[in-house]
Design a protein around this nucleic acid. Structure first.
Ligand SMILES: [Mn+2]
Ligand SMILES: [Mn+2]
Ligand SMILES: [Zn+2]
Ligand SMILES: [Zn+2]
Lengths: 152, 152
DNA sequence: TCAATAATGAAAATGAATTGCAATTTCATT
DNA sequence: AATGAAATTGCAATTCATTTTCATTATTGA
């Protein structure tokens, strides 16, 4: 076990390793993304950033997310939308997703029992698991209420 | 609970409902796909069918798989490859996937405990789950052996 | 200050998925 | 068997997210 580095440390380690330079635009994007802590498509993030800094282009947003993914500060999600999403990865944390197909809401959850059972399954097949994905699709509490009201 | 229909019944129900006609090409594709019982990309299936029936086009394969998906005889999988895959859906059956990132092997498994725990989680959040996806990515037994042999 | 090199924006390229359309095939009805 | 409405097919074209190219600008260490 070696000490885990903070997000910004990870980022500067990565910059050092690949000889990257810094830029205000990229910093702004990264900062916005990490603070918002949501599940953005590239386009969604671009649209929000455009409001505050219209001089930032789609390409730069795209490349910033790609960079974050490379240094494990962002994870890529594919929730059945046409476009894939990026979420901030926090230290030591793992979670899975509940996805509402009606309103798009995404809820994160953790369940140690499930995690343990997954490992059991893998062991049974001689598999070594390096990553997994558990997604529950359906309708959230709020949307179920709305739907109930609409019937009749 | 009403009686579940067999694959071919499902197909002819669907044909009746949408006024479809039958064709040798489509039948061949569907037959090949269901018998092979694997996780094909459209292109993979096309390439294999091309060997036996070169007069069948990519579009027709694509449309046959789409049709199967519509009548729930095929399911769509997204395993991180660039292209999505289709798998036959068997009656009453549900399963999740172990995916070897080295050789591409896909192993199917079922685990009732995990299924139950998923429902518990959903209930806790007021969610109604209509579908879910559990994928374990890693390295299969065979590939782990190979890798062990290669070191040193 | 000055190179060297990275970052950026705009446009083009890529590639899987999908569709438009003319030609062909199916099939119920003559 | 012939007919004709409607479905199927092949090919090319299109869509759309993603990725790359390339000319220009910004950063940084010497
Ligand atoms: Mn998440
Ligand atoms: Mn499967
Ligand atoms: Zn909802
Ligand atoms: Zn393998």
């Amino acid at each position: 076990m070696h000490k885990q580095s903070s997000p910004l440390e990870k980022l500067s380690e990565h910059k050092a390793r690949f000889g990257l330079k810094s830029s205000n635009k990229r910093s702004f994007i990264i900062d916005y993304f990490l603070k918002a802590d949501r599940h953005f498509t590239v386009e969604e993030l671009y649209d929000e950033i455009k409001q505050k800094k219209p001089e930032i282009s789609y390409s730069t947003v795209y490349r910033a997310l790609k960079l974050l993914a490379e240094c494990k500060l962002a994870g890529q999600c594919t929730f059945g939308d046409s476009a894939s999403r990026y979420e901030p990865i926090h230290q030591y944390e793992h979670h899975d997703h509940l996805i509402c197909r009606r309103c798009g809401r995404i809820i994160e959850f953790e369940n140690d029992k499930i995690e343990r059972l997954q490992k059991d399954v893998a062991r049974r097949y001689g598999f070594h698991v390096s990553a997994h994905k558990l997604e529950l699709y359906g309708m959230c509490r709020k949307c179920r209420k709305v739907q109930k009201g609409q019937r009749q």
